[in-house]
Design a protein around this nucleic acid. Structure first.
Lengths: 329, 329
DNA sequence: GCGCTTACTGTAACCGGTTACACACCGGAG
DNA sequence: CTCCGGTGTGTAACCGGTTACAGTAAGCGC
């Protein structure tokens, strides 16, 4: 592979001139430029990014840490990030942390060594202090970490209230909540939203809040238990779509008809919700937008452009599909 | 951030010695080593990967090009690749090509500039000549490109035959095939497998082969058309799980009972198949294994270890779930 | 004719590592 | 006592770019 010195020799100029042509900065005589371009073309020269990065301290590479790309929420987010980054000439390194602090630390270390320009986190097992010590721009998506760190989230509590109220409005007499893991902040917020709405109801009891882990399997089992122990539950608000699907499977197994006997609302709006039957009613987060906005925010941070809002809270939207009854109001 | 010269100064040795300690090569006196380690510790020094890459010409980074990470087949593959690469200290750059030749070329160019050590392709819009010109080790997964290029695939034709025979065995009288795009080789193979089995049947007619594009939506519409025009079709072998799901939705819409009136078998074995109701019977490829094996193969190619087989064809396995009738034999 | 600005170009240091080569020391074989 | 191979260490070139700085030439106003 040809390097810049080969080009400069062939063009009969110095490396500085070639570099100027490449980067379009400094003065270069049009004739000289032509000679250089011709040489570049002849040698099929492409500049070496690694060398450039070494003097620049810019790699045009960012890291994206997600818990598990296999979880249907994250591919869409990753896609958004990649799409935006591509536009601006950045490349994305994908990391799966499994919500494991050790793994996250490991990636922090590696990514730092690799001189990434920025980092997008869709996970947050990491202590905040470590994140602040990491002297590379960071944007957190879907998890609030601390006011000091640029963040993109959806209105979790508001969405949860909306869903719960909707279930009541359609006539549900006893609504349960399948909540996400204690350690995840958005799970907490969604649970709070649910509690806000049902707290005063005479039928409400804390045992209507079921502990899930954002995965189908556990949700399935817990829902089986719930529906056998408390058969009068006729509405479930699940903390995410996967758990809602787990709940649906439990109901289907128990021959409970959806939505007639049991209405279910999920949270997230992953495409998977449209692939199942009946299609899942859900509180949709703008997943792609969250990724795209986070990515744009990160680029601004990297390039020192002014960022209008370091804390973006995006609206959620209820999507009525097959697991809820129509309400005519 | 401290660099190697700072360390050498603090330890009172030369940079060469520090480098030798870091890389555990060459002779270093134990006492000297201790001094160096102490200095490294004190300065919190971590070596700069970019600089290392520049002289090494090894970045410990590979590229992974998939059509679209949003397609449920690829996250599992990506996860496998990332898991294996992590073990060996490599990092993965994720690229979405949308099966678009231009985008693929663009990534080839960028990745080359970034000095990646190897490339995994799960897409193949690229002419073979371009791939051979790319002087970096490549492994292709799920798409056969050419005998010259290391490849990991599943036994597509065999799996297709298996599925089609199974449908017949359970008593289907007229089995249609929803095929994938013409341009994708595995779609062709699966179609051939289907034709192998039904060619001789008196009911067979080429209009039982329906053109899909591996996506749900089109499969849904085409199946709607098929089932209304030829209501006697009682079995569908779909070229992938997504299309099978599209077909299921069409049947559900038309109130055709699955599997009693219509049996469906998919291909791939994506986890999505277990999330729907009824769960999808499918010819499962070992997706994770394909990724993992491909990744291991790539590492061997990169590190010049001997590779036993440059062309790995993995077994598929029929998974009987809810969209087929049990056969008692 | 002189000084000053602008256009253009080259030299060489620098980014932060790796490593070929040179050199010095030491113990054992002959 | 000399020679030799194994240890241990430093100097400096190199990877392939960027860029500060210096230098030259031309154009212009006075």
């Amino acid at each position: 592979m040809a390097n810049i010195r080969d080009v400069s020799k062939l063009a009969g100029v110095s490396v500085a001139t070639v570099s100027r042509v490449l980067n379009q900065n400094g003065y270069v005589h049009p004739d000289t430029e032509q000679k250089v371009l011709k040489a570049i073309n002849e040698l099929n020269y492409i500049p070496n990014f690694v060398a450039r990065s070494l003097s620049n301290k810019k790699t045009k590479t960012i890291g994206l840490i997600v818990p598990d790309i296999t979880n249907p929420f994250f591919p869409e987010l990753a896609r958004a990030v990649e799409d935006v980054m591509k536009i601006y000439g950045y490349t994305v390194i994908l990391c799966n942390s499994d919500e494991d602090e050790e793994k996250e630390k490991h990636y922090f270390q590696i990514l730092k060594q690799k001189y990434i320009d920025g980092l997008i986190l869709a996970t947050a097992s990491m202590p905040i202090s470590d994140m602040q010590a990491f002297d590379v721009p960071i944007v957190v998506i879907d998890r609030i970490v601390s006011q000091g760190i640029p963040t993109v989230v959806a209105k979790n509590k508001e969405g949860a209230r909306l869903a719960t109220r909707l279930l009541l409005k359609q006539g549900c007499k006893k609504v349960a909540h399948l909540r996400g893991p204690e350690s995840v902040i958005n799970a907490r917020e969604r649970c709070e939203g649910y509690v806000d709405v049902v707290r005063e109801k005479e039928w409400f009891h804390p045992n209507l809040i079921i502990q899930g882990n954002y995965e189908i399997k556990k949700a399935f089992h817990e829902t089986m238990k719930l529906l056998t122990e408390q058969p009068d539950v006729d509405g479930i608000f699940a903390g995410n779509d996967l758990m809602a699907i787990g709940a649906m499977k439990a109901a289907q197994q128990l021959k409970i008809r959806i939505p007639d006997e049991l209405a279910i609302i999920g949270f997230d709006g992953i495409t998977l919700g449209e692939m199942i039957f009946p299609e899942l009613s859900t509180v949709a987060q703008p997943i792609y937008d969250m990724g795209a906005i986070g990515a744009r925010m990160l680029i601004k941070l990297i390039e020192n452009s002014p960022v209008d809002k370091l804390y973006q809270q995006l609206d959620v939207q209820f999507i009525e599909r097959g697991t809820t009854r129509k309400v005519c109001d």
